[in-house]
Design a binder for these strands. Sequence first.
DNA 1: TTGTACGCGTTATCAA
DNA 2: TTGATAACGCGTACAA
Lengths: 349, 349
Amino acid sequence: MNVTIKDVASLANVAPSTVSRVIADSPRISEATKQKVKQAMEQLGYHPNLNARNLASQSTQAIGLVMPSSKDVGFQNPFFPTVLQGISEGAQEKNYALHMTTGKSEEEILHAVVQMVQGKRVDGIVLLSSKVEDQVISYLIERSFPFVLIGKPYKDIEEITHVDNDNIRAMKEATAYLIGLGHKQIGFIGGSLELIVTSDRQDGYKKALAEAGIEARSEYIIHQKFLREGGQQAVRELMQLEHPPTALVVADDFMALGVLNTLDELGIRVPDDISIVGFNNVLLAEMSRPPLTSVDINIFELGYQASKNLIQMIENSNEPTKRLIISHRLVERLSCSQPSVEKSDKSND
Amino acid sequence: MNVTIKDVASLANVAPSTVSRVIADSPRISEATKQKVKQAMEQLGYHPNLNARNLASQSTQAIGLVMPSSKDVGFQNPFFPTVLQGISEGAQEKNYALHMTTGKSEEEILHAVVQMVQGKRVDGIVLLSSKVEDQVISYLIERSFPFVLIGKPYKDIEEITHVDNDNIRAMKEATAYLIGLGHKQIGFIGGSLELIVTSDRQDGYKKALAEAGIEARSEYIIHQKFLREGGQQAVRELMQLEHPPTALVVADDFMALGVLNTLDELGIRVPDDISIVGFNNVLLAEMSRPPLTSVDINIFELGYQASKNLIQMIENSNEPTKRLIISHRLVERLSCSQPSVEKSDKSND
DNA sequence: TTGTACGCGTTATCAA
DNA sequence: TTGATAACGCGTACAA
């Protein structure tokens, strides 16, 4: 059998409750017994049974993490491990453990979440992305269970603590950067519009055009759900327009890599023939050819702040709802240049 | 307060133990009461408290996962999310939860593992890679706690259930493939030799050369710890040798991508001037330029078998120690060709 | 087939 | 400052 608090107690000649107090580092306990107990613990190699502790204290020191559905391509995106790293770091600092969950369908995921919550396996939950109708969010709100969302909620913004970038502004700046270089024909390539992050970035793109007095053309906007096949075709069509864009903003570096390859196959050179700005600034961005100018959104920090603030909510029940905006910055590399004369409407000197 | 087994019992007019039996789907319970109880559970929205259950049953339905140290570059490697996906899938199928741990140092990690094990948070552990002197492994063996290792143990091979590829053979085949194309000057680029996987692959490389009667040249072998700066320099030096290699085997696709870029900067064309075979066949391999011929090691399966077999060990205490070898296969893409005449020792027709 | 009673290892309350 | 003692919610031998 395992060594319990009782064993320690009898070895140290004190009551179990005293040992418990020593573990909790209670202030009202004599230094003498404290040492005595600690030594006994050491000697026996004692470690508290967390299940018993959780049961008695009605709290686990753990946070739950809902991962993207395992079929999801998002899993392959370098975004995921990085944000996980951040979450993990924030948890570790406060001595919280991490409990993960996935599922192949919406139902499976919801079920797993309910299990975690009602089963009292975790004290709070970090959510990775919200969808338009999110059952998990509804469920958590209804039970008023602590959670923080990484990304922007589709609704109930005021009631959901979330950590996000200012994606509208970020994409606006990225687009403005291209406009500043002299581009006027700028395309947008993003993922599914069901993701809030996509629509935000698209909004930013449109805003930048509007402010510069450039008319948005619907044929310049592409949504590709998949990274490869579908995307390639879309890019091809885009470049076969009568007036193809001289620059592209792509809402994700991973996608941008696919775009880069398709362009290469078409014999279109970057940045000579077309400029590209990526998004997220994952490690890949600097390893691509040419190295990708990309908007760094501080992925690690996104995760770190999420778990850190979640723990604050857990430990202080009247912590206010927060909206945390993580900073971004454009990292210039070699995928952008001024538009070539032949393709722009008027020449630059 | 939360709804407990007692509430269900009183609503259904039975004893708590009966409810417990219904949950466990005990065979010796009348269908009538079973229905009655189930309905009561439904009506109250009952969910068992897992901490109480774990405490009473002395087992959690959870497996622990030790992730690479958070500072580790390995985190950025697409290998990680994929293997995680596999582990997660294997766990989910058996209704096991996943509990994660990281740490910034060896000590932190060991501490976290001890916490998981002694704290009885998990029933078993999946380890991602072993190092030469691995405290975690020693600890788990000493306590004879169920665990399975993904990769090859440095020692105690017979006593550690592990799931791995036959990396020696896989790399031997990859090298032989290049030899078959006519290459004789073949370089090897791998990570730190402290990782068993690196030394295995290097062994395979040497074996292939030996079998073909080609002398191994030490200046053709490179170990780069980091993906970028260090690696670039190494590749440069390699290509400036009097007789530079006409082909390279690279022990990791992610590294191969860096190599590809360095070669591009040097104006060396792939596969015209030099052929490259990568390893792991991550999504990246098909998105690189040129698409990378790579050895698919079935990363998902590695993770899936790991958790699946771990659960077998947990549920059947005299499950034998196993060594599971996951198959591999060379995926041909466009990064290899026959050596060009000027650089090979004799011409091909 | 079902109920009673105890144990799982802690924490927390109340006395001392 | 410390010690009994009662929860915490569930599983399970044992009894009925």
